[in-house]
Design a binder for these strands. Structure first.
Length: 589
RNA sequence: GUCCCAAUAGCUCAGUAGGAUAGAGCGGCUGCCUCCUAAGCAGCAGGCCGGAGGUUCGAAUCCUCUUUGGGACGCCA
């Protein structure tokens, strides 16, 4: 688990501080506190592998021109035994450092020894982090927003795992509360519609085709139609289907029950089917959770009441107009909010508070990361304030907000309407586009950017789609190696990598070296999109290398051997990145 | 009205906690296969980084103001 870039950067920092120490000791620099300087990787490679701005930030305290300081530092710096071979002074006073050939050779050897573990770091030090994502409403199928959340959350968990955290994936099932009430009401309504004269006609007519039956009923729903629909019910055909299936299995069983009993029977029937459906569909999307946490368990354990009682006792909540309010104004918010309504029911945030208390205190996770739609941003500070009031360290809760996806088909934005039931579901999306493309595409942009998902483009199996570009690089290497094998060329055990001096080779190796860094950064910023970009860049660098440096017709057999192993290393790195993203690595295309 | 997020090439977006001449893909134009996969590579064209101030050696990046989009502000979830 070595990170050659990081260690080189740290070594350089020490060398510079060391040189500064010598300058102070001999009196050519004032004995002042050295300001913070940065060691970074320049965008322009002619500026070396690392650049330090030490001289520039010291200009003021040293009362010397930056270039002069840089000269002094460079005269005292000792690169012997370091991974650097030379230093240059450039521009306004940058010191540019160039890595030795040995370092580049070490990069390839490092990949060869770590193989499928290359890229892993111990940055997270085994801290336990719980990643909650999707948590779709179980009253219906998942929509396109869940598709994005799923791809981001799942890859984020992988990234954290690779960065040395112990990451768990969790789905919070909202199997209680108002939306379940609404679910029951909707099911009951549809059931009664099926029991009506018109409903019976339709059931008879479409007795061999439930799907058709549902679309017919759906088409006849609405104002002035056969089936009037009140405002607060779900309209989707999935609701009709549940009602119809139940009806077919138990004819008229519920017609004469009380509304309440009928709702309960239908919810008990349909909800497990929906939850199993969520699990099945997510699995198809290559997402498998460690835990499915049910909201109902919070209610069963009476934790909602406990939370509100605790807040009342500690003076963080009060009763007014028959409701119980949280004193959010004590936590910098402009409005208090309701915890328990006058009707005695808790608002949605109470079970959420209890749930997060469970995550951070009961289960004692070091971090809880939630991937949520951007429309939740107002909710996050409320949740955090309530947790703080309960004595929980709310900074342990991090939220990744993701913006909406605009679906585009034929150059036009596809309208998404929850009410109409015509929203594009995760399943229909995955029927339409390859899973590889979906997972890659949803991680192509950072969560925070609202982006356009072009359905036509994602379907297209062409170079326009970046995932094919990356997979092609992998397939190309496999094919290249197979080709060599068929010609009787053996794969060497080792090679002299210092022979790889072509700029395209150097660039490629440099990029290979940066994988651990990139993963760490992605973990730090909760941004798995860094890795799709990394993969695209790596593929581009490989294609460039492939184009400019022939393996089979190399200048010498030594160079050929070095290139063969470089290709194998690149293939390994591609495999690892694609494995994090859970995208297939085809050997042929 | 208050708050959050965005604004960079014709389009979609990067820009690695302030760095050197602002990058990529797509689209447009031009080259490159008797040679390991042309699903590739090389090149050209395309920019007042929404606007105005400020902070400093240095700003797309930080601060203030402003314009334009998107979204939040419920005894809905």
């Amino acid at each position: 688990m070595s990170n050659l870039i990081k260690s080189a950067s740290l070594q350089l920092r020490e060398l510079i501080i060391d040189a500064l120490g010598k300058l102070v000791a001999e009196g050519s620099a004032p004995a002042e506190l050295i300001p913070d300087f940065t060691v970074e990787i320049p965008a322009d490679k002619s500026h070396g592998d690392f650049a330090a701005n030490t001289a520039m930030v010291c200009a003021r305290t040293f009362k010397m021109p930056p270039r002069k300081i840089a000269e002094l530092i460079c005269s005292k710096i000792d690169l012997n035994g370091s991974v650097f071979e030379r230093a240059e002074i450039a521009g306004p006073g940058f010191m540019n450092f160039f890595l030795s050939k040995k370092w580049f050779a070490d990069v390839i050897e490092n990949v060869m020894s770590e193989n499928e573990k290359y890229g892993r770091t111990d940055y997270g030090k085994g801290r336990r982090v719980l990643v909650e994502f999707v948590s779709a409403n179980p009253t219906g199928p998942m929509h396109i927003g869940n598709a994005r959340g799923g791809a981001i959350g799942d890859c984020l968990a992988s990234v954290l795992d690779w960065a040395g955290y112990h990451a768990e994936r969790e789905f919070y099932v909202n199997d209680a509360g108002n939306q379940i009430e609404k679910f029951g009401k909707s099911l009951s309504l549809r059931y009664m519609q099926l029991c009506s004269v018109k409903g019976q006609q339709l059931i008879y007519e479409y007795r061999y085709d439930t799907e058709k039956l549902c679309t017919e009923i759906y088409a006849l729903s609405g104002e002035g139609q056969d089936f009037e629909m009140p405002e607060d019910v779900y309209l989707g055909t999935d609701i009709i289907e549940h009602a119809a299936n139940y009806y077919k299995e138990n004819i008229f069983a519920l017609e004469n029950l009380s509304e309440e009993e009928r709702r309960k029977a239908l919810v008990d029937y349909a909800l497990p089917i929906n939850i199993a459906g969520l699990e099945r569909d997510l699995k198809k999307y290559r997402i498998v959770y460690d835990n499915w946490f049910k909201e109902s368990t919070v209610h069963e354990k009476n934790q909602t009441k406990e939370v509100v009682d605790k807040l009342l006792e500690s003076g963080n909540a009060y009763e007014q107009d028959g409701a119980i309010w949280f004193k959010a104004t004590d936590y910098g918010m402009d409005k208090d909010f309701v915890l328990r309504r006058t009707n005695g029911l808790y608002t949605y945030i109470v079970p959420d508070i209890a749930y997060h208390y469970d995550k951070l205190v009961t289960r004692n996770f070091d971090k809880a990361v939630n991937v949520l739609g951007a429309d939740h941003h107002g909710y996050v500070p409320r949740l955090k304030a309530a947790l703080t009031a309960l004595g929980v360290d709310a900074s342990k809760l991090d939220v990744v907000l993701m913006q909406m996806v605009r679906l585009v088909r034929n150059g036009e934005t596809v309208k998404l309407s929850k009410r109409s039931g015509k929203a594009i579901t995760l399943v229909t999306l995955l029927d339409e586009i390859p899973i590889d493309a979906a997972r890659f595409y949803f991680n192509l942009r950072e969560a925070n950017s609202q982006f356009e998902f072009d359905l036509d483009l994602a379907v297209e199996k062409s170079s326009q789609n970046p995932v094919f570009y990356v997979q092609y690089a992998h397939a190309r290497i496999c094919s290249l190696l197979a080709n060599l094998e068929s010609e009787g060329i053996e794969i060497p055990e080792n090679a002299d990598f210092t022979l790889l001096n072509n700029p395209r080779e150097i660039e490629l190796i440099r990029h290979i070296a940066s994988l651990p860094n990139e993963i760490e950064l992605a973990a730090k910023q909760y941004d798995p999109a860094k890795l799709t970009k990394y993969a695209v860049d790596l593929a581009a660098l490989f294609h460039r290398f492939y184009d400019g440096c022939s393996v089979k017709n190399a200048e010498s057999s030594q160079v050929m051997n070095a290139r063969i192993l470089l290709c194998i290393a690149v293939r390994q790195v591609l495999k690892n990145v694609l494995a994090i993203l859970k995208i297939e690595q085809p050997e042929k295309m």
